[in-house]
Design a binder for these strands. Structure first.
Lengths: 364, 364
DNA sequence: CCTGTAAGAGACACCGGTGTCAAAAGCAAG
DNA sequence: CTTGCTTTTGACACCGGTGTCTCTTACAGG
């Protein structure tokens, strides 16, 4: 091997690039420095885009980096920076599609950054929830955490993040007071819009299948429902409200209850798609034609919505965009200037009503 | 503060526990060492369960750890150990539920270990797939990678892992030759069993909706189908095979094709649930009663299977167990003795046929 | 009581980066 | 060609752990 540039520093550890490659080990910053003929600190400056570097030096270093295929060791950086480059996604969502879409949005946002994503499902029901999360956060020390509903509604969790100095963004169905820590959709408005459509189509008796008690999303959706009916001057008799928990079986129960009424509703709004699927199977079982005899609307636009027959009119939640937005809001300083959230960027993303085949005009 | 045990070593950095807590910083191994009156190396020995430690010393250290709430910094450990404690889950699966269930299984397995899970969706279609994965693996340097189907079928990806010295386990629908790197189900057998049931119920013309060309899972399922019909001495006319790609819309197309035949099948086996849902909606649209006039079987036991009406008979894939098993096979040496996979543990996990309401006896 | 031996604990270097600060280099003005 | 200033670079310590090797210590045997 003929004389190479820069072996000017003696280093016990230095090995020629070829040997390194063969050894299967990653080249380190020292190897780059040696090859480029500069100090490791200078290489570090190039990696971190320091401004105090001449173009000539920068180019030499960049070439060496390329030649060796050098990739900075994230663990070492994390240690030296006294912070790591992880963000955590905490979720406890029964809807896998939602979680994965959100995750995808987050990854879109951090794609060109140094960040990596740690995904952590948690158990909402467990009484060790807070301890589990605390252990996780203390161990991994992510820069920030994204909280997906329903656990995003847990104030203790947010407090825990504060306490541990972990940034957080809560994702929800309506803006929180503390808008810096929240990215949300506008469930109330869009439900009101969807239910308004039912009213326009002549429906006067409209059933409502609730979400689980205590869930903000459930409350928001119900508020939207109330709003639409009140605006239309319609009554809200108790018998048209069925309890639910976002599960298919709850939809079955709700369908049985509502469709057995002396005067059954001609349309039913369900707080999510799974329950709508449940209501729809009850209708099928009873020989009630959808949408001719019964219109049904769901919420989520989950895969189920298009897999059932007839295809379900529902509300599409911009979950992937919300993931991207949430990540931007969480770690704007780690993203590049183009990806970064503008300060004035809205943290409320509109959901949209998607019309399919499960809705029709009320029979006269 | 009265004289504490062990401030015997002078350390510029040492701060009293109380002060540390207030500062919001994590205590380090040095703090523990100082409090316990031992060297940091001894603390390290306790953390790593070295055997060369007296009970007395161990207890003192453990008490100090507890008192300070010390948690070892994973980045520092990773650096010192020259390996990190991450495992990666690479997936490109349209079925979110599958991914999440698998992920849950992996987390079950690594729960009590030092390992963390990095989830990485990839784009099978992209021509940059290999580069993307290479960049990811070089940057994060996980100990190992779990490959979910369908990308687990990509041999180049496996070769890449070999090259980079990253362990890997491929998850699939049938054992690979290289059994050490594979955890699988037994799709062929269970499909044969399910289709056998149809034959027993008197079905003679049974349609088959294929999975995407080139997918091992699709091939295995088709093999099982052939096997069952051949065993029963039935013919396999081409017209009863419809192409598919695991998507709902393909199920629609397949349903249209098969149910428009001069002599339509009395039962259809679909290579996954989504396509089965498509076939079922076509049947509904045509006024063909399921299961009275047409039996349908799917594969995956996805949420869709129970959300459609009538509920779909399908094949349940033990995906969560497979996640657990795969993790055990990947990093047995990082799991404790109870969790660890026994060497002789089988890497083939049986799928089961789940009978619901979409299958009935053939009409005479 | 002394010695030999093995187990336990400590000192120090090191993993691969970054922060700090001082030295070197570059450049304009005297 | 100096001087004085600013810009760029390097030496060295440090982040929080672990590996290696040496030194202590405890205890059994002579």
């Amino acid at each position: 091997m003929p004389d190479q540039p820069g072996m000017h520093r003696k280093s016990r550890n230095f090995m020629a690039p070829r040997t390194r490659e063969k050894s299967g080990k990653q080249p380190t910053i020292n190897d780059v420095a040696a090859l480029a003929g500069v100090s490791k600190k200078t290489v570090s400056r190039v990696i971190n885009r320091s401004e105090f570097i001449t173009d000539k030096t920068r180019q030499a270093v960049e070439q060496a980096i390329k030649m060796l295929g050098f990739v900075p060791n994230p663990q070492a950086r994390a240690l030296a920076f006294r912070r790591n480059f992880l963000i955590a996604l905490l979720h406890d969502n029964p809807n896998a599609q939602t979680v994965l879409n959100f995750q995808q949005g987050v990854l879109d946002a951090i794609k060109d950054s140094d960040l990596a994503l740690l995904v952590r499902p948690v158990d909402r029901g467990s009484d060790r929830l807070l301890d589990d999360v605390r252990t996780f956060l203390e161990k991994q020390r992510p820069i920030g955490a994204l909280l997906l509903p329903p656990i995003s509604e847990n104030d203790e969790l947010a407090a825990l993040c504060e306490e541990l100095g972990v940034r957080y963004v809560r994702v929800g169905s309506a803006p929180l007071d503390d808008v810096r820590h929240c990215v949300s959709s506008n469930d109330r408005e869009v439900v009101a819009e969807a239910v308004g459509k039912l009213v326009e189509l002549g429906h006067r008796r409209i059933g409502f299948v609730r979400g689980p008690v205590g869930f903000r999303s459930a409350a928001e959706r119900e508020k939207g429902f109330h709003e639409a009916l009140t605006t239309a001057g319609l009554a809200l008799p108790d018998e048209l409200f069925a309890p639910g928990n976002y599960r298919y079986t709850a939809g079955i129960d709700a369908g049985e209850a509502l469709l057995s009424l002396a005067e059954p509703p001609t349309a039913i709004f369900c707080s999510n798609d799974e329950m709508a699927a449940g209501v729809m199977s009850v209708a099928h079982g009873k020989g009630i034609a959808v949408p001719t005899d019964l219109s049904i609307i769901g919420f989520d636009d989950s895969p189920t919505a298009t897999h059932i027959w007839p295809a379900l009119s529902t509300v599409r939640w911009p979950i992937r965009e919300m993931g991207m937005r949430a990540a931007r809001a969480l770690v704007p300083d780690f993203l590049d200037i183009n990806t970064r959230a503008a300060d004035e960027e809205s943290h409320v993303l509109p959901s949209t009503f998607v019309e399919r085949q499960s809705v029709a005009a009320a029979k006269r």
